[in-house]
Design a protein around this nucleic acid. Structure first.
Lengths: 186, 186
DNA sequence: TCTACCATGTAATCTGTTACATGATTGC
DNA sequence: GCAATCATGTAACAGATTACATGGTAGA
């Protein structure tokens, strides 16, 4: 249900079409939500059927490809969005990360390969940090919620980078028998 | 596929039954992965069918409930696990958080309700931090990967707590017209 | 010519979650 | 008697991902 409400939220700022919504979510909320067309268009359809959004305009100014359907939020949509906004979140945050899941078991594998994979992550997070800082620079205004979330994304990125370098260092200099450590904790 | 490999990884430490696997994942990897019985048992079944695990023993020492099926990893399982371990992760980390998604739109809602929801999160993260620190204290050993991941979880928790308090403060003292800030960024 | 980007959409598949069914024991 | 914990499992549903289909323009 979260995606529907994210779409409703975005349409409160501006009328938008599907492609733009995806772009916007990726740029501004990319660190906490991902989305793809397989979700966007069916959800727009269903929001439309429920009367929460309507087609405000068929934008023909697009030169490339098919015409854009500009969606607008309706009164019912605004009401539904407000209701959702003041509710407590249904679930807690989780850091679902295929790299970290691997990392936990690096004691069983090849140390040099592990270090390679860490380096790969470092490169990735460094690249991402530049993008996030660039996106954040477009946001200013005291107390702005979007700016605050964007800052959290950057701080998190920096934390992970620092952690990765520490982890690499420890792996290179203090590699012990991992299995013993964990067996005790089971 | 990640869950299957997480199970294979755990079985390298020790033979385990389904219930224990869930408990272990929640305690040690709870901050980066969640799991439920609807995934555990079907995945154990399928790993068994693929020959990656086998039933080592029917543990009858359990006094409560049905007998435990103690699973052990096979040679093929170890091979498959090693193959997976040295691969680059398929995807990047995302922070999927229903609270943050709401937070982004707090400018459209009631400020006092927003502050209530922030306080709720602060309580939640404080509680979680205590649990994580307790779990981490059982892990020691230089260069231990499990310990490092557990530390990342704690550092992340502390970062979010600090951020929440800052966000609350900014909302109380510098609440501006949010819509303007974002419209510019679109 | 080929790639990248713009734009909409559907279908198949995979994953994940919730709820249910079963049933024994321990402690309040 | 009731709730909590241990223990295994299935079914229905919800959510997410990938691949496909279509087709136009801009630029290298």
């Amino acid at each position: 249900m979260a995606i529907k409400h994210a779409i409703l939220g975005l349409l409160q700022y501006k009328n938008m079409h599907g492609y733009k919504i995806k772009e916007h979510i990726e740029r501004n909320f990319g660190h906490m939500w991902s989305i793809n067309y397989g979700q966007i268009y069916p959800n727009l359809k269903s929001l439309h059927e429920d009367g929460f959004i309507e087609i405000a305009e068929m934008d023909v100014t697009s030169v490339k490809g098919p015409n854009r359907k500009l969606y607008a939020i309706t009164g019912a949509g605004r009401k539904e969005f407000k209701r959702w906004l003041q509710n407590s979140p249904e679930k807690n945050m989780i850091l679902r990360d295929p790299f970290l899941l691997r990392f936990v078991f690096f004691g069983f594998g090849d140390r040099d390969r592990a270090v390679e994979l860490i380096d790969e992550q470092v490169r990735l997070y460094r690249k991402q940090l530049i993008v996030r800082k660039k996106n954040a620079s477009r946001l200013c205004g005291k107390g702005s919620c979007v700016r605050l979330v964007s800052e959290l994304g950057i701080e998190f990125n920096e934390l992970v980078l620092k952690w990765l370098l520490r982890a690499k260092d420890e792996m290179l200099h203090n590699y012990e028998d991992e299995a013993e450590v964990i067996r005790k904790a089971l």
